[in-house]
Design a protein around this nucleic acid. Structure first.
Lengths: 143, 143
DNA sequence: GGGCCAAGTGAAAGACTTTTTCAACTAGCC
DNA sequence: GGCTAGTTGAAAAAGTCTTTCACTTGGCCC
C-alpha cells in the first residue's frame, strides 16, 4: 500500500488527515519490518513531537480496519503492524532481522481449505498463514 | 495429547507432579476450546483452591515447551492455549463457540513453501496456519 | 516411615501494554 | 473567519505478564 494511497484512503472514508496520522502512516510505510505500537510511537514521535501513544493505538486500529496495515502475531511481542501490499495476504517474517515480506498464494491454500471443509463440516471463512525463517541476507550472515 | 500422557511426560522429563500442575493439565485436557491463562486459572482454581496465577503461567509454559499444549493467536485475547493432538499442527477455530480442532496437512503446505522459498530466497523454518470459521453445530444454529 | 533438598509455589510488587475518560484542539467545510 | 464533528494527549484505570523471595512439597534416599 503506497503512502499517498493510505492518506487518500483515510480522507475518502471521512477520516481527517492530521499530522499525527500522517506521521504514523509514514513510519509504517517506511519500515521494512513489523513494528510494535511502542516502536511506531517512538519513531513517529521524532517527526511529530508531542504525539501521544493513545493516538498511535487509535491510528493503527483505523488503518487496520481499512486494510492498510496488517496485524501480525509473534511469539515475543505479540502484536506487530506492517503496511499491506495490494491484494497479498500472507506474511513471511525473517527471524534474523524481523523484516516482513508478503506473498500472494491465496489460491494455493484453496485445495487444503476445501479438503478440511469436506472432512470437518466446518465452513471456513478466514485464515491466518504466517511463515517464518531466514531472509537471504541473514542466511548469508549465518553462513 | 491424553491427560495421563501429559502427566507422565512431565515426570519423565524431571518435572514434579504437583496438584497444581495436575489441575492445569486436567483443565486444558477437558476443554474443547482454547483457553486464556486467566480462564485456565479460574477453572483450575475450582479444583485446586489457592492456586496462583503465576503457577498457571509457569505450567502453561512448561507444557508448551514439551509440546503438550499449543499457543494460538487470536484477534481479541491474543494468547490462548489448547491441548495438542498427536502430530497435528494446524488449528481450526470456530468463531461461534471458540471450539478448536486440529488437523493434519503438513504435506499440503509443502508445495507452497517450496514455491515461496524458490521465489524469495528465504529459508522457511516454521509456519503458523490457523483457519477460522463456523463448526457444524454453529452453522446449524446460524441457519 | 522419616528426613532431605531441589524443584515448585503463592503473595506482592513491578513492568508493561492497552483502554477509557474528558477537556482542549483542529481539519475541513461553509 | 467561524463552526463543528472528529481528533488529540494526559492521566487514570484496567489488564496482562514477569520477577522476587520466603515458604512448601514431591520424589528419592535410607
Amino acid at each position: 500500500m503506497r503512502e499517498m494511497t493510505m492518506a487518500r484512503g483515510l480522507r475518502n472514508r471521512g477520516h481527517k488527515l492530521t499530522q499525527q496520522r500522517l506521521a504514523v502512516i509514514a513510519v509504517v510505510h517506511e519500515a521494512q519490518e513489523h513494528l510494535t505500537p511502542g516502536q511506531v510511537f517512538e519513531r513517529a514521535g521524532r517527526v511529530c513531537p508531542g504525539l501521544g501513544l493513545t493516538t498511535v493505538y487509535r491510528t493503527l486500529e483505523v488503518l487496520s480496519e481499512l486494510g492498510f496495515v496488517r496485524r501480525v502475531h509473534l511469539e515475543g511481542d505479540c502484536h506487530g503492524y506492517v503496511a499491506t501490499s495490494c491484494g497479498h495476504r500472507h506474511a513471511l517474517i525473517c527471524q534474523g532481522c524481523n523484516r516482513v515480506v508478503e506473498f500472494p498464494g491465496e489460491e494455493n491454500l484453496e485445495p487444503l481449505i476445501e479438503w478440511i471443509e469436506a472432512r470437518t463440516g466446518y465452513r471456513i471463512d478466514d485464515h491466518l498463514l504466517q511463515l517464518s525463517g531466514l531472509c537471504p541476507d541473514c542466511r548469508a550472515e549465518a553462513g
